[in-house]
Write a protein that binds this DNA or RNA. Structure first.
Lengths: 236, 236
DNA sequence: ACCTGAACACCGTTCAAGT
DNA sequence: ACCTGAACACCGTTCAAGT
C-alpha cells in the first residue's frame, strides 16, 4: 500500500502489487498490455480503445507511440515469438527440427488467437526473423543445398501454423475439458456420417479417424513426413 | 405486386444490361455480389453496407437472407471452392495430388484475399468438404492406412494454403508486373543483407535464395517433399 | 414473405490544443 | 515531449414497422 501523490487510490487495493502512477506510456508497456487484453478477449475484440482503457489512458495517446493497429499487431507477434525456446544445437537436425516445431506450437498455444496473428500480414520483426534464422541454421549445418533451405524452412513453419490453426479451431468449439472434447468428437462423427453417402464415401468411412483427436501423435506424424521428404534431398 | 418471380425477359434484350427492375434478393445473388466486391476492394473493406449498396438495397435487408457476416464469409468460401477442378482419377496418386494442389492454388489466386478467407473460421460448407473428400479418395485408392489419410490430407491442404499466403503477400507488396517484382526482390535482398551479421549469418548468406521468386518451382518442390514423405507410409 | 428506417453499440484514426 | 477532446468516417446487427 504505497502512498500516491496525485491520484486518490482506494485504501484497499488488495494485491500487494505496487502500482506506480504516472508511468509514462511506451511501446513495450502498450504491447504487454495488449497481450493481456488479447488473452482475455481474443483477437476480434482486441481494440485500441480497450488497450487504452486498460492503461488508464485515452485512445489517441496510443498513436503517439505506435503508428497504427497493424504495427501494434506486428509488435505483439514479435513479442510472442520472443518466447520460443531455441533448439539444442548438439542434437541431430531431425531432433532439432522437432524441438523447433514443438517450441513454436507451444508458444502458439500460450496466447489466444496467436495463430491468426501469425497468419495475417507480413512478418518482419526481429524475433520472428530470428526464429527463421534458427531454422535456416538447422538445415544449413545438416548440409542441405542453399537453394532448398528457405523452401524447407517455409514448409516447417507453415506446417506448424496450419496444424495449430486446426487444433485450436476444433478444440475451441467445445468448452475446454476432456469431457466436452469427447462429446464434440461424437457430434462430429455423427455429422460426417450424416453426409450424402454417394458424394462422401471416404469422409463417412473415415469419420472416426477424422474426429479422433490424437493431436500430439498427428503433429509428430506431420513432422516425420516432412523430415523423411527432406532427407531425400540430402546429397549424400 | 405479383411480379415477384417475373424474369424481365424482353424479346429484344439487347446488349445493354440496364435491368433496373426489382429482382428479389436471395442468398446466391448476395454471395455473387459479395464475390465481386471482394475482388474489387479486398477482404478488409468487404462490408455488409458495400454489398447492400452494390445490390441497390438497404443493409438490413441482407439479414433476412443471411444470418450474419460470418455466415456470408463461409458461403463465399464455399462458392470459391466450387470452382476447383477435379483431379483425373486415372492418373497415379502422385499426379492426382499435384493436380489437386494446382487446382487449389489456382482458385486461391482467382479471388482477392481468398487465402485469408480460408484461413479464418471452421470450414463446413458442402463444396469445401467435397474437396477434402477428393483428397481422401486419392489417398484411399493409393492404399494408405485409414488412420493416416485425414492427417495427410490436412498436410496437403495446409501446404497449399500456407504457400499461397506467402506468395500473395510478397507479390502484393510490389505492384503487379515483372519489373516491380524484380525490383522488390532486390530491395528485399538488401534488407536481408543489412541485418546484424552476428545474429543472422544464414539469412544473409541465403538472401538471394530467399528472394528468388521461383514460385512455380518452389510450389512443386513442396509437393514433392510431401509425396516422398507420404510414400514411405505406404505398406508395400 | 420480404424489405426498410432508425437506432445501438461499437470501431480506427487524425489533429489542433493543452501541459 | 507527451497526452487529450473532439470529431470524422466508418462498422455489424437488431427490430418494430411497413408493403
Amino acid at each position: 500500500m504505497a502512498r500516491k501523490r496525485t491520484v486518490p487510490q482506494h485504501p484497499f487495493s488488495g494485491t500487494g502489487e505496487q502500482e506506480e502512477l504516472h508511468i509514462p506510456l511506451d511501446r513495450d508497456r502498450i504491447v504487454r498490455t495488449a497481450l493481456r487484453v488479447l488473452n482475455e478477449f481474443g483477437l476480434k475484440e482486441l481494440s485500441m480503445r480497450k488497450i487504452a482503457d486498460e492503461l488508464q489512458v485515452k485512445t489517441a495517446s496510443l498513436y503517439y507511440h505506435v503508428k497504427d493497429k497493424e504495427q501494434l499487431l506486428q509488435l505483439i507477434g514479435d513479442k510472442i515469438s520472443e518466447e520460443m525456446d531455441r533448439p539444442d544445437p548438439d542434437l541431430s537436425w531431425q531432433e532439432q527440427l522437432i524441438q523447433w516445431g514443438h517450441a513454436f506450437r507451444r508458444v502458439l498455444h500460450r496466447y489466444r488467437d496467436a495463430v491468426d496473428l501469425f497468419n495475417g500480414g507480413i512478418a518482419m520483426g526481429y524475433h520472428r526473423l530470428l526464429q527463421i534464422e534458427r531454422l535456416y541454421q538447422i538445415f544449413a549445418s545438416a548440409g542441405f543445398a542453399d537453394g532448398h533451405i528457405p523452401w524447407m524452412a517455409s514448409m516447417v513453419k507453415n506446417h506448424v501454423l496450419g496444424f495449430v490453426a486446426e487444433e485450436v479451431r476444433l478444440k475451441g468449439m467445445a468448452g475446454s475439458g476432456e469431457e466436452a472434447q469427447a462429446q464434440l468428437s461424437e457430434e462430429y462423427a455423427r455429422f460426417f456420417r450424416s453426409l450424402p453417402s454417394e458424394q462422401f464415401p471416404n469422409m463417412i468411412r473415415l469419420a472416426s479417424h477424422t474426429t479422433d483427436t490424437g493431436w500430439q501423435e498427428e503433429f509428430e506424424f506431420g513432422l516425420d513426413v516432412l523430415m523423411d521428404g527432406f532427407r531425400q534431398r540430402l546429397t549424400d
